[in-house]
Write a protein that binds this DNA or RNA. Structure first.
Lengths: 241, 241
DNA sequence: GCAGGACAAGAGCGCTGCTCTCGAAGATGA
DNA sequence: TCATCTTCGAGAGCAGCGCTCTTGTCCTGC
């Protein structure tokens, strides 16, 4: 976002920076309050004491504002999960590290429902997430993968699936390249990759269900339910007892 | 929706019925084309050749229109899954029945992205799904539960989870009541209920990931990926080989 | 046949995203 | 220092939105 090419920090450039930050902060507050679809550029303009046309000096359009918010939220969520996982003292206790990371995902989501909807809900109508957003999105997944990779290095092996055909490797080729490129596991067992991807899907699905109200009537104590799910996923991954 | 109390089918009542149907159909088309958040009452009014205020004679407001569409979509999806599961000839082949039902969920969703977003995506801003929508929503889940119940009756038992504490029963009390009230399994094993709920979450999570683009870069052949997931879920449920 | 009700259309309110113009203020080169 | 050039904020305006109210017309039940 900030220009690297040592721009002279004139009064104008400084003002521009702070005002841009203000606009983003106001938009973030609106997002938290009303949800992504109701985010109105005019409303954030009023919040920062500007007329709507003036904010177009700082933000290209509504979509650009949403993109900036998406990046910010992915980053915040990723950081929260990183912190939660990193503060588990016993680094050998992979199950606890897994649980801590998963819990952090849910807790951030519960605390930020509007932001969650922006990240993982229905894409805003005409809006297509640009490339800038995929990188911050991986930050969170990386934490989970790292935990699984550590467990795998310690000898944990997931139970084999029903059809252990060779085509599995090409099916999840993208995901395998992803972990290999980051030096986590090279030549990861396809079954492990499949199970990790499934687990991540279930984690987010569980949070989604809770956030969007699809668990109503089936489960009351959603926090306890989430823990049960996360622990069973750990077992399916070959982690834990 | 339709009045049961034998309304005299005068020309006016007849016209009212067909026009209401036209409006719903137009709204459905708009929903499929533009997604739920962009559904505009004025646009559907134009599509049916009316002025916007005239539509309010037939639809209370935008939320009511959305509710009607939600019910219609849940019903359509439920019927599709029911059909797919029912046409599996070998009723003893529970795995195939499970796979057929799961595939139907994905295929309907892929064919109806806008509708999927309405059902399982971010709730529309000020909109809260009324009670009318929860019943049609269960139709689809019921198919999956019935398959699991049949497998259970045949002796299938899911692998025990990591912590088989007694609290599990109260945690999923709502879901157990749900299946008991419909005479599927009374006194269902909590572990089975947990596993079924988890499986349903993963199925929808997988479809969600595909629909909302979170699988991009990890998996290319999403249809094959879905089958792999569904089969592993069957295994985790104690169904299948 | 006539009164009452259903209906379609139009105007209007306040909101939205976004564009264009204009005057003021800050930055910059001669 | 001063003229120029750029940036900025405000305002007006366009087209669209959900929704309400009024008006005139047509249909239906008595």
């Amino acid at each position: 976002m900030r220009d690297v090419t040592s721009t002279p920090r004139t009064a104008r450039a400084l003002a521009r920076e702070t005002i841009t930050r203000d606009i983003l902060a106001a938009a973030r507050a609106r997002l938290a309050a009303d949800g992504p679809a109701a985010l109105s550029l005019r409303a954030v303009a009023r919040d920062v004491g500007m007329v709507s046309s003036a904010v177009y000096r700082y933000v290209e359009n509504r979509d650009a504002l949403l993109t900036a918010l998406i990046v910010e939220c992915y980053d915040e969520l990723g950081a929260a999960v990183e912190d939660a996982e990193a503060t588990v003292p016993d680094r050998d206790d992979v199950t606890t590290r897994w649980l801590a990371a998963c819990r952090a995902v849910r807790e951030w989501s519960v605390a930020h429902p509007g932001e969650f909807g922006l990240l993982y809900g229905t894409p805003v109508p005409g809006y297509a997430a640009p490339r800038d957003t995929v990188d911050p999105a991986t930050r969170l997944v990386l934490v989970l993968v790292r935990v699984v990779a550590d467990a795998h290095a310690k000898g944990a092996v997931p139970p084999l699936g029903p059809t252990a055909e060779g085509g599995l490797a090409t099916l999840v080729a993208g995901a395998r390249d992803f972990v290999a490129a980051r030096g986590l596991i090279d030549d990861a067992p396809p079954e492990l990759v499949v199970r990790t991807l499934m687990a991540w899907t279930t984690v987010l699905g569980t949070v989604s269900f809770e956030m969007f109200g699809h668990l109503a009537g089936s489960v009351d104590d959603t926090a306890a339910w989430f823990d049960v799910v996360a622990l069973r996923l750990a077992a399916d991954l070959g982690i834990g007892l």
